[in-house]
Design a protein around this nucleic acid. Sequence first.
DNA 1: ATAGCTGCAAACGCTTTGCCTCGAA
DNA 2: TTCGAGGCAAAGCGTTTGCAGCTAT
Lengths: 140, 140
Amino acid sequence: MTGQRRVIARVLSDADDHPDVEELYRRASALDSRVSVATVYRTVRLLEEKGILERRDFGGGRARYEATEHGRHHYHLIDVDNGKVIEFEDPEHEELMRRVAERLGFDFVSMRLELFGKKRPQTQQAGKTAQAAKRKGAAS
Amino acid sequence: MTGQRRVIARVLSDADDHPDVEELYRRASALDSRVSVATVYRTVRLLEEKGILERRDFGGGRARYEATEHGRHHYHLIDVDNGKVIEFEDPEHEELMRRVAERLGFDFVSMRLELFGKKRPQTQQAGKTAQAAKRKGAAS
DNA sequence: ATAGCTGCAAACGCTTTGCCTCGAA
DNA sequence: TTCGAGGCAAAGCGTTTGCAGCTAT
């Protein structure tokens, strides 16, 4: 394992948001200026194949990544005004979809679910989820 | 309105599947060899802006289109083995997601839901939905 | 006649890849 | 020393666009 791969892996495991390749490249470059975008692409693909990382597509043309969560799945709510991503759980959901697939004569393989919303301005009791999201830069 | 736009519009309204631009171009060319891909792209974008058409992204890099349905929404189950798309309804779903958004302090704007599955081989009682899907070529 | 549409090919944005060098083991 | 990893730049892919000519109205 080389230095650049180590750096990229570190950036990825440190990230608690959903960076795209450009952002990963930026963060990795800050730690070690020798990394190139090509290596970020290659590393990210490698880690995805190993199941360590998951590629997400929130629209907007670029892939975004997050560490694979073993256990509870979560879904994403994208703020249409600023692209920020809020994670949420919905335990019943997968079971529901599993039944739908079954009803259609299919075995459930996976699903993709994204919610798009606008922050409700009036009631400010959004809770810590929104607060946590607010801390990061644009498009977490 | 020119001939090529008419042809493309016709191909689109005739389609009961989810063609991508390449496929639309193929079908339109068969009716009128004067159409170009650029025009297909332009027309499809135009119709989407007018709300007549909806762009879908089922993964695989290319956009796919279907006529806007006024009224009941539907979702898509993609057969991972051959890319075929089966539509299904789930009336409660949107209401469910609307509540999730609300709980997070957001107004629901839209959602994206895709199911990926493998056709179950044993029980052959899949029903007409699967039958209907079977009639079309690859990737409906 | 004229505003708008079309075809063609070039340009674009993201991602991949060929090739040759470099570095880890 | 050897073989995989990395850098760079070119290529690839779907999509968009500039430009000049053509077409409905």
